[in-house]
Amino acid sequence: MTQDTQFPAPDFSLPSDTGETVSLAGLKGQAFVLFFYPRDNTPGCTTEAKGFSADLGAFEAAGARVFGVSKDSLESHGKFRAKQELTVPLLSDE
């Protein structure tokens, strides 16, 4: 059985390593997933980000966008995505 779950999100506007700014207002009416992780290039965070990247097609097929969020810089995110071949955009909340 599948259950849709919604959690209220605080208003945010964060830069992405893809060059866009992602905001709650900009995502209004869209399904999206935010996953939070402490730091780029740590074992657990890498596993988590690779898992979301591997499943990105399924999320997109369901109509949902996926974003990772950490306090690391956009430069760090870019290196992390390239090194780990991640397909999920990463948002910086420094």
Rank of each mutant, 00 (worst) to 15 (best):
N41Y: 02
S76A: 13
K71C: 14
P38F: 11
S70F: 05
G26R: 09
Q30P: 10
S70T: 12
F35T: 06
S53T: 09
E60Q: 12
T5H: 06
G29I: 09
D17T: 11
F35M: 08
P38W: 10
G68Y: 07
G68E: 09
Q84H: 10
S92V: 07
K28A: 15
F12D: 00
A61N: 15
A64H: 04
Q6L: 13
G44V: 11
L91A: 03
P10Q: 11
T18I: 13
S70V: 08
K83W: 01
E75N: 07
A49T: 10
D93E: 14
A31W: 07
S73C: 04
A62T: 01
S53H: 04
P8E: 15
R39F: 05
V33R: 01
F80H: 13
T5F: 14
S73R: 03
K50L: 12
D11Y: 00
L14Q: 14
V69Y: 06
L14Y: 15
V88N: 07
S73A: 01
E85W: 00
D93K: 09
P89R: 09
G78P: 00
D72S: 01
T18R: 14
R65N: 15
S23R: 07
F59Q: 09
Q30I: 05
V33C: 02
T21L: 01
T2E: 13
S92G: 10
S16P: 07
G57Q: 02
S73P: 02
E85M: 05
K28E: 15
G57D: 12
S76T: 07
G51M: 09
G57M: 03
S53V: 04
E48T: 06
G29F: 09
P15D: 13
T46W: 10
C45D: 06
P10D: 14
V88P: 06
Q84R: 11
A64L: 14
S70W: 02
D72L: 00
S13N: 01
S76I: 06
P89E: 09
S70D: 05
L86Y: 03
A61H: 06
N41G: 01
A62S: 08
V22G: 00
T46M: 15
V69K: 00
A61W: 03
A62F: 01
T47S: 09
S23C: 12
F52D: 06
G44I: 08
S73L: 08
F35C: 10
V33N: 02
F36R: 13
P10L: 10
E85V: 04
A64S: 08
V33G: 01
T2M: 08
P38E: 13
A49Q: 13
K71M: 05
K83F: 01
Q6C: 07
D93R: 11
F52S: 06
